[in-house]
Design a protein around this nucleic acid. Structure first.
Lengths: 229, 229
DNA sequence: TCAAAAGTGTTGAGTTTACACCCATGC
DNA sequence: GCATGGGTGTAAACTCAACACTTTTGA
């Protein structure tokens, strides 16, 4: 009953970032092998004594110097037995969200090796990563409507217009400002701060904050986030 | 860059069956090893050139002689590096649904080795399978409300009361017969047949059928199954 | 004729959608 | 004072939730 398996296990991360009304994904330029100079998802092989989730964090740290706000297992790709030509690889894909402060990669990284791409203008990807990315985008869109993960793509304090634009640009839908605001405020976990924005023109806007404690408290009482946009 | 991995990959299946208002899960009695004589989920190691999904089908066939109506990848358990004492194992869990005609296991199986357990009276399980099972039950409950998978737990032709009882018993909720019927029929993918039930007492009931084609057609037009019970 | 389960409509409450004008600031 | 984006309320349409009696059969 001892298996003689020759299957490698890897993790891949689809890291989403949001900035100026565009959704970005992080890619890494391969340095070696069949896909040299192609862009691929950050990720790599799991170490023998390393939990999967830790492997994801490690790879993101090594390859892009990034710490994420949100990380969730997406799907395990193991049906195409030839996705890597060298040997059979099964890949566990994770979806991660970062806020815009991480969209600068200069700090910890070899700048040429990692970059953000607007999802409307992505490069050709190596392996089967195009498929993985498409699935991740779908998952993100779905999840935005039934879990409050949009806040993980924004800074701690944000304008209501930021939140609204985030939803509109990711879901490609028009949203009525009044109804959107009414609904989100009615939930009771979005709090006004006393900071006020001052940009070039227009009336200054208040900053708001997502109160995680209030959200989890509500959740325990049976509350179910749903934007049904 | 060649990894020297010593990680095994396995699949496990949580197979749900439904009969006389109870939800059942299929377990296998281990014959060897640390968990000898303990009940565990059907599953096993993936072969080198075998797609994951095929491994699941194979194991279900070998261990219980079962073909499923529905199969979906659930989650990959790979964070607890000691879940199997012999070596590190990462397990990809799948959720499967069968209809009640499969609840007899005598045909293809060593009867002592596989059995169905009502989820309210499950045995002690080996490995970390208790956790996996709990997650699967949660997923099933959720999914019942937003995907029409309840039909995969019923025979092709079923009574409306069967469907209603299935939802009530799995979700532990009272359902108003009139509202439930009204809503499901309004979707337009449940069809009346001309078969009529005849049981001991009470007015005979019509059999109904779930029309998959109509459902997928609606789905493409943007329809979204939702029972919000 | 009685017991048992199937079948059927209506009303009030709550939620969602559509919609337009005033406000505060910078230039 | 005007351009720019922020902030606000109301009414109609729709959906959901609650509720009880009639029908058909077998015994």
């Amino acid at each position: 009953m001892e298996p003689n398996q020759q299957i490698r296990i890897a993790v891949d991360a689809i890291v989403f970032g949001y900035s100026s009304q565009k959704l970005y994904i992080l890619f890494i330029k391969q340095k070696y092998g069949e896909y040299k100079d192609k862009w691929v998802l950050p990720g790599g092989f799991v170490k023998n004594d390393e939990p999967l989730i830790q492997a994801v964090h490690r790879e993101l740290q090594e390859e892009a110097g990034i710490k994420v706000n949100y990380l969730e297992q997406l799907y395990t790709f193991g049906d195409d037995i030839n996705r890597d030509k060298r040997f059979r690889v099964i890949s566990v894909a994770y979806m991660a969200l970062v806020d815009a402060t991480h969209l600068n990669l200069t700090a910890d990284t070899d700048a040429s090796a990692a970059d953000w791409f607007d999802i409307t203008s992505m490069p050709v990807l190596g392996y089967d990563h195009e498929i993985i990315v498409q699935q991740a985008i779908e998952r993100l869109k779905n999840k935005l409507t039934y879990q409050p993960i949009g806040f993980d793509l924004l800074p701690d304090e944000f304008l209501f217009s930021d939140l609204e634009n985030l939803y509109m640009s990711i879901l490609n839908k028009e949203i009525d400002r009044r109804n959107f605001r009414k609904k989100l405020l009615s939930f009771g976990f979005i709090e006004e701060t006393d900071r006020v924005s001052s940009h070039k023109s227009g009336r200054p806007a208040k900053y708001y904050r997502f109160n995680v404690e209030k959200y989890t408290a509500l959740q325990k009482k049976g509350f179910h986030f749903d934007l049904m946009i």
